[in-house]
Design a protein around this nucleic acid. Structure first.
Length: 298
DNA sequence: ATAGGCACCTGGTGGC
DNA sequence: TGCCACCAGGTGCCTA
């Protein structure tokens, strides 16, 4: 009897809620949540990283989900009440869909697991379970109309795939920055949605050392970084999308990581630039691992 | 204002 | 087998 318990994030060793993974989760939630009413909300603890908003379960119950949006690494579910539910996956958050909302799966609600903090029951029979062992994730409710001013969203920089992120912007934003380019690109006020992995990957493609001070990189190289960042993110979203199709058609397993990284977690392995015989190094910058090729990233 | 470091929390892995 | 140190995709907050 085949059960269905589909993680919408890569499981096992590879969970990675940076922008592309969050976008993949959002896309996976759309067909089971959009236009559907939340008939019940189980809130199994008072908080994640912060306390949940007052009366969260009641404010979700009987609300129709009008749409699911994403800003940076946050998902926003716009509700008929005029409020929006903000969801952040932190480091270890996952969304699991169970039930048979699309008529494609064996109906089977798995036994609750440890760290199932919030469960949304939808009118179509789907259950969406937020599971987050480390509890760095977050949920909050706000007025949809003023969502942009929410403290977690207000200071975010441009979306990497949006028009506001362009060559002129990035050159300007990094000028006179005294921090390493690695740190600057992780700064969500400069560009929203990049995390440790995709910053490493983008710098590798651009052949820029993560140690180089942002403000001392030539404008030419910064301009070149812009389409590279867009590509890295867009390709990862595409990989996520194909994994969603795969799991729908098969057995509920997300075959996410046919998508492989060029540098992330490849310490001592060969550099993948064709003209380079170097190997990938790992260094620690502000407490986080940076992977790069010392030989060809300058 | 800006940059660096720490804290939050749990679980997995690898060494002894 | 057990214990312990170390590592992990994020980001707010405190300190200099």
């Amino acid at each position: 009897m085949g059960g269905y318990n589909a993680p919408l994030l890569p499981q096992d060793d590879c969970q990675m809620p940076e922008l592309p993974e969050v976008e993949t989760v959002r896309r996976g939630l759309v067909p089971v949540m959009e236009g559907q009413v939340i008939t019940q909300a189980d809130v199994n603890r008072p908080d994640l990283r912060w306390p949940f908003p007052d009366r969260m379960a009641q404010r979700l119950t009987d609300q129709k989900v009008l749409g699911l949006r994403r800003r940076s690494k946050y998902i926003l579910a716009d509700l008929a009440s005029g409020e929006s539910l903000l969801i952040h996956l932190g480091m270890s958050g996952r969304m699991l869909i169970s039930g048979d909302p699309l008529g494609q799966f064996v109906h089977d609600h798995p036994a609750p697991e440890k760290h199932d903090h919030v469960v949304l029951h939808m009118a179509n029979g789907a259950r969406i379970t937020f599971n987050d062992p480390r509890r760095f994730g977050a949920m909050d409710l706000m007025q949809t109309a003023t969502a942009d001013t929410h403290p977690l969203l207000a200071k975010l920089g441009p979306e990497p795939l949006g028009n506001a992120f362009n060559e002129a912007y990035l050159v300007q934003a990094l000028a006179a920055k005294n921090t390493p380019i690695k740190s600057a690109l992780l700064d969500q006020r400069i560009i929203a949605g990049l995390g440790n992995i995709y910053v490493c990957e983008a710098l590798f493609r651009a052949r820029i050392s993560p140690k180089r001070k942002a403000g001392q990189i030539s404008a030419v190289r910064i301009r070149a970084l812009v389409p590279i960042i867009r590509d890295v993110i867009a390709e990862a979203i595409e990989a996520g999308g194909s994994s969603l199709r795969d799991f729908r058609q098969t057995d509920g397993e997300l075959g996410y990581f046919q998508h492989r990284f060029d540098v992330y977690d490849r310490e001592n392995e060969p550099c993948r630039h064709e003209d380079c015989a170097g190997h990938i190094s790992r260094i620690v910058q502000s407490g986080r691992s940076s992977f790069y090729c010392v030989k060809c990233q300058r």
